[in-house]
Design a protein around this nucleic acid. Structure first.
Length: 445
RNA sequence: CGGAGCGUAGCGCAGCCUGGUAGCGCACCUGCUUCGGGAGCAGGGGGUCGGAGGUUCGAAUCCUCUCGCUCCGACCA
């Protein structure tokens, strides 16, 4: 993309309403525009990041054997009356009446609807196990939306639902989700720690939250210093292998890691003192096993091999997709702006033309731009007629991980500069070498 | 929902207390100069001061109501 033709309304000054760094930087980098309390438009660059995150979530869900579909944002109230949650959910549920005076609601989650889909089409144990998920906008009418997209009222969430014959099968689904989530967050460059959680209105006793460590997090967290060092890495996982999947879960949940809701000081004190960490975290996902809570209430049953009809065992699992954009920035920024991890960056590299209009720098930039595109990469070429300082400031603000700086001085010796946004370190090399280097960085990302 | 605060140009703000023709910086447009870390000079455009009502000769300013937003607390992906 050529910046002169893009829509990137960056702000030089800090918007007054933004208190935390991710919100401030998202507004300054032209990623979002607030439309009402807790409701945002996603401007082109914000939208790109959102889509990248969404894509990673999809890929990892599909890798784990889960099946995507799409349910609507608006739901009929009757489904929720069946489960009993129409009355339980309270003011957080946005209720709407249509022209025929039918009660509707903007879905805060989809347990009822997915259960309805399931019961309409599945009758036999032979169709199990089944895990369906979607990535869809949700609305929860928070009393006090804040922190930008991290706690909006409208938010994009991946929510998945597993249907199994036995509790044992359902717990395998639970474990599968835990492992797939670990990989999902790692691919985004995040360290998200699974922590035993309290269950809340979704119900169920088996539940973990995934927390990204950040000083601005809403939850207080207590953990063993060894926990953030755990990495799934690139190991191949057979998601059908129960023992293997369970072993990974054990690896990641044995060491102490709890939120304030489930904190157990006695257990915490057993950790060697130098490893006892107290901090704050941002919740970016949660998994639940809740058994037959919804299937019983809504008649989602299957016939067993023995010919009995039993309610299916279920669980649900969520990843806050739009929240992750904020969480990523909270975890990756400095005083100049955002620092995107390669896995989610809106553009793979930025090209800064220091002397727009100069024949040699213009054509060198064009050549680099085209070469990167030929490599299948998505560069952002700052071809505006701006001074160097302004271009650098914009690049630093929007946080592309790699920058190629092209100026007449270096070009005289066939050199451009490749700069890492994270380390700030620069290296001079030929334009061709810079392209090759960037292409190599993104192999496998 | 309890407490606090803010709405004046696209953004950041002053003006309000003590009523008298709406201002500054950034951004935007034009020209000249500049050109490796948010340039300089000159000129220019843009605001029914969130909305409604009231007091007054006169309201951004005082009063009443209302809408919106933010922050702190109790609740949540």
């Amino acid at each position: 993309m050529r910046l002169s033709r893009y829509f990137l309304p960056v702000l030089k000054e800090n918007p007054a309403e933004a208190q935390i760094v991710s919100h401030r930087l998202m507004l300054r980098a032209g990623m979002i525009k607030q439309q009402a309390a807790g409701i945002y438009s996603w401007l082109p660059m914000g939208f790109k990041v959102l889509r990248r995150i969404e894509q990673i979530v999809h890929e990892e869900q599909i890798r784990a054997g889960h099946i995507p579909l799409l349910m609507p944002t608006l739901q009929p109230a009757d489904l929720w009356r069946e489960s009993g949650r129409y009355d339980d959910y309270g003011q957080e549920m946005l209720r709407i009446r249509d022209r025929h005076e039918r009660d509707m609601l903007y879905g805060p989650t989809n347990e009822e609807m997915i259960t309805d889909i399931f019961r309409s089409h599945v009758n036999s144990y032979k169709d199990l196990p089944l895990t369906l998920y979607h990535i869809q906008w949700k609305f929860r009418d928070e009393v006090r939306p804040r922190f930008g997209v991290m706690r909006g009222r409208e938010f994009l969430m991946k929510d998945g639902y597993n249907f199994d014959l036995t509790k044992e099968d359902a717990l395998h689904a639970y474990n599968r989700h835990m492992v797939s989530y670990l990989r999902t967050y790692e691919r985004m460059g995040l360290t998200a720690i699974p922590m035993r959680a309290a269950s809340g209105p979704i119900g169920g006793d088996n539940t973990h939250e995934f927390l990204v460590l950040a000083s601005t997090g809403e939850s207080e967290v207590f953990y063993d210093a060894k926990v953030p060092e755990l990495k799934l890495g690139t190991r191949e996982v057979d998601f059908d292998d129960r023992a293997e999947v369970a072993a990974i879960c054990e690896e990641f949940t044995t060491l102490y890691a709890r939120t304030d809701e489930t904190h157990d000081p006695a257990a915490f004190d057993k950790i060697p003192e130098e490893r006892r960490m107290v901090g704050r975290g941002i919740e970016v996902g949660q998994i639940f096993y809740f058994g037959t809570k919804y299937s019983e209430a809504m008649g989602a049953t299957v016939v067993t091999p023995e010919g009995n009809r039993v309610p299916v065992e279920m669980g649900s699992h969520g990843i806050g997709v739009s929240r992750l954009v904020g969480a990523l920035i909270e975890a990756n920024h400095d005083d100049k702006g955002i620092i995107w991890p390669e896995g989610v960056t809106p553009f793979h590299a930025g090209i800064v033309n220091l002397k727009q209009g100069d024949v040699s720098t213009d054509s060198a930039c064009e050549a680099i731009y085209k070469a990167l595109k030929l490599k299948g990469l998505d560069p952002l070429y700052d071809d505006r007629d701006e001074r160097a300082g302004a271009k650098f400031a914009t690049m630093d603000l929007i946080g592309l991980p790699w920058r190629i700086t092209v100026g007449p001085r270096g070009l005289a010796n066939n050199l451009v500069e490749l700069t890492s946004r994270r380390s700030g370190e620069s290296e001079e090399m030929s334009p061709e070498a810079a392209v090759e280097r960037i292409a190599a960085i993104y192999v496998g990302v």
